[in-house]
Amino acid sequence: MSPNTYSKEETQRRYLQGELTEKDRMAFEAWLVDHPEVANELHALQALDQKISLAAQAPTPEPTGQMDQRFYAMLAEASVPQATVLDKLLGLFKLPQIRRFAYGAGLVTAGVFVGHYGHLLQQQDDLETFRIQSQQQQIQALAVLSMLEMPSANKRIMAIQLAGMNEAPDDPVFDALLNTLVQDDNVNVRLEALEVLANHSDKEQVRIGLLNAITQQQSPTLQVALSQLMLALKEKAAVTPIKELIEKPDVMEEVKQQLNQTINELI
């Protein structure tokens, strides 16, 4: 430490606060001997420090009992569990009006939930029913198609009756019935097919198939039955095929008369 710094406040502070090394302290105290005004000032500060220490030892008056009482009252109050947000909300429900409103709102909400749940269940039931019906129809169609291939006419009639039990048969079933109407060897089978197809004559596929079948019928019974059906359906498109049928040489005369009468009524 340079003697040039001895007059600086920082050096004097470090001396008073005991931060100087032993060597620096001795050198500084030697310098103080030649600078009594600084030495006096520093000694006065040291003396003041001692006075403060003395003052600090002066007994402090005891706090009154009120300090403890007030603290423990505060602590007791703070130790009581504070109402949580949930508690406050539940507290609100203790009010009669709000309680009635809450019950009402609860009932409405429960009703909405129950209704919605019931609706979902109903939808589920409908879907299940539809799925079962579709499955049954598919099985039925397969049965009809396979039975129509059987050599027994009775079985084929049963197949057609089975198809007739279905309110909305598939297109392949209609195709099979129309083929039966044209190609089956047995008149009774063909008549049964015509009866079932007549029930679905509103369907375009069926109506066209019936018109096409007119000229291909060789049985008088079916020729008359088809023409009667066309008359019942008021199907004017049937006039041409009926005329073609009349032109055929193997058509019986009584049948021709019946067909001509049908044409006249349709026109």
Binding site: P61, P63, T64, Q66, M67, R70, F71, M74, L75
Partner: peptide, 12 residues
């Protein structure tokens, strides 16, 4: 004394 007690209370 009273002010000191008050401030002790406030601190806690």
């Amino acid at each position: 004394v009273s002010l000191s007690e008050d401030m002790v209370q406030t601190v806690f």
